[in-house]
Amino acid sequence: MMAKYPRSKPLWKLYIGPMIMALAVAAFPMIARGDYSYLLDLGRLCGIYVIIVCGLTLLMGYTGQISLGHAGFYALGAYIPAVLISAFHWPLWAAVIGGILGTAVISLLIGSSILRLQGNHLALATLAVGIIIGEGVSKLAITGGADGLFGLPQITLFGLLTRPEVRVLGIKISQGVLQLYFIWAVVVACIVWAVQLIESPGGRSLRAIHGDEQAAESLGINTFALKVKVFVASCVLAAIAGVLFAFVHAEGNLLPEEFGLMMNVQLVMMVVIGGMGSIWGSVAGGVILTVLHEVIALIGSAAGAADTSRIEHLIFGVMLALILILSPSGLIPGLKRATTRIIELRSK
């Protein structure tokens, strides 16, 4: 089926990006100095957000459907398996599969109803869904309420991730680094999938919906079905990120703060900062915002401030507004344009 259509890019061009990224991540622990475990922590968190933002970019950037509620699905991915384990004593692997499938089913139900809405209505509905789930997990008794769930098992990959260090070809790799590699392996897989999708006929249909939904419909594209598919796919990616957060990054201790109202906004911000129309922009957006968060916290604690969240929100808000006003296509395309302009001016 797919072979009938010409690819717009040769294969090597599609995969060179993910490969470079994989190499960069592999090299990261060797380059990183200083507070090592702290940097690993940061690297893992970046990877988790990049997975969500990757899906959200497909939905918002390519299909043009806004979602202000993806933190909700991120929460489902973390909490469904956690509840299955803590309340129903499922084994970890079954709970994780159950969590991802459960999120897929829930997002299918929600998506197939609310994606009939458009624009402002869709924005409100998705925001409402995000708040409902986020508030729900912080209030329900079965999810531990505001105290969260503790002592959940961790993903061990057949014991690989529990060892303090592993030797590969004579190189020692510590546990934290292995966890980082594991998360970023998932990230690379997600990005390969997304890049593949975008360059396929299906991806072109998505962009057609963004351009003009009625025109796409008239070309024989089942726009509604496609929108629901992308919505579910992006929710599944968010759920995978949730699983990685709960069972690798947070080491089995799950708190509802991670999935609050601000997370919904932060995810959208990552998409916007990177540039709404590019997968690589979403990688950049996820990494930039996560690193910035840590930098602000570091500067704040060095300056003796106890709570940096308010100043952080201020900085994020100003950044988001400036980017949208000055360069609505995102930070990366904006910088690209600015540099080409400077080069043009120089050569004159």
């Binding site: 806004i66 929100h313 808000g317 100003v318 988001l320 507004a321 949208l324 609505p328």
Partner: peptide, 23 residues
């Protein structure tokens, strides 16, 4: 200043304004 932006962009700008005013 963002005149002519898409509705989604406007929504996100107002969200940014909301965060700024709140902090």
């Amino acid at each position: 200043p963002a005149k002519g932006a898409s509705p989604v962009t406007y929504i996100i700008i107002t969200i940014a304004i909301s965060i700024i005013l709140k902090s």
